[in-house]
């Protein structure tokens, strides 16, 4: 039997909002350490890696490892039926072909359950090599979302250039060109609002704006976002989910023709 209960049910709602536009289906791999999900988008340009640790749930039971293939649009529709303050429980019998979501209102007066058929997905798991990144940028997630939204109006691609002075986001297109420079925050009094750059080597890479805007759907999960870059390897955009895990997006760079 698999059962995972989360008082902060809104986290699951936000996680689905953060991945459903990028992925149509994915497998939730559950074991006694928690829930993992790893899937590439249909074009195989980006990859989502979600981890929700067992100790972040208010109750977590996983008698036997279980992989549940799900249509993420369906899961998103079901989770939209949960209130922001509801407790959400996911449960499934061993080798079941359905999963049940139970939503309990804060005062326990309303309890809803939704049963959904599971899918047989033989999604390939990619090996993501541990990488020492040349540049790591931590910044407010809302700031990053704003930059991606603004610059994607100017062009399909965004250049991210990280140096010791700071990080510059640029885009050019028909209507012109745009540059946004963020300096490293000097006095870090409020960590969440700071721009913190760790740089071993300067790095400049080009990425498709469309995917970056999909990634920023995760903004509500964390006040900060962390960008990790090295020459000629995929960008990592990471949103930490407080006390339970993270969602990481990987995006392959674009190269000059």
């Amino acid at each position: 039997m698999f059962e995972a209960r989360l008082l902060r049910g809104s986290i699951l709602k936000k996680v689905l909002e953060a991945i459903k536009d990028l992925l149509t289906q994915a497998t939730f791999d559950c074991d006694d350490s928690g829930i993992q999900l790893q899937a590439m988008d249909n074009s195989h340009v980006s990859l989502v890696s979600l981890q929700l640790r067992a100790d972040g749930f208010d109750k977590y039971r996983c008698d036997r490892n279980i992989s549940m293939g799900m249509n993420l649009n369906s899961v998103a529709k079901i989770l939209k039926c949960a209130g922001d303050k509801d407790t959400v429980t996911m449960k499934a019998q061993d080798n079941a072909d359905t999963v049940t979501f139970v939503f309990e209102s804060p005062n326990q007066e309303k309890v809803s359950d939704y049963e959904m058929k599971l899918m047989n997905l033989d999604l390939e798991h990619l090996g993501i090599p541990e990488t020492e990144y040349s540049c790591t940028i931590r910044m407010p997630s809302a700031e990053f979302a704003r930059i991606c939204r603004d610059l994607s109006q100017f062009g399909d691609s965004m250049v991210i250039a990280c140096t010791k002075e700071g990080v510059k986001f640029s885009a050019t297109g028909e209507i012109g060109s745009a540059n946004i420079k963020l300096a490293q925050t000097a006095s870090v009094d409020k960590e969440e609002e700071a721009v913190i750059i760790e740089m071993d080597e300067p790095v400049t890479l080009t990425f498709a704006c469309q995917y970056l805007n999909y990634f920023t759907k995760a903004t509500s999960l964390s006040p900060q976002v962390q960008l990790s870059m090295s020459a000629d390897v995929p960008l990592v955009v990471e949103y930490r989910i407080q006390d339970i895990g993270h969602i990481r997006y990987y995006l392959a760079p674009k190269i000059e023709d």
Binding site: V45, L126, P129, S157, A208, V233, K254, D257
Partner: peptide, 14 residues
């Protein structure tokens, strides 16, 4: 123009 790389060339396949 720029060419979009695919992830498989960076990450080991299954």
């Amino acid at each position: 123009d720029e060419i979009q790389e695919a992830l498989q060339i960076f990450f080991t396949g299954p």
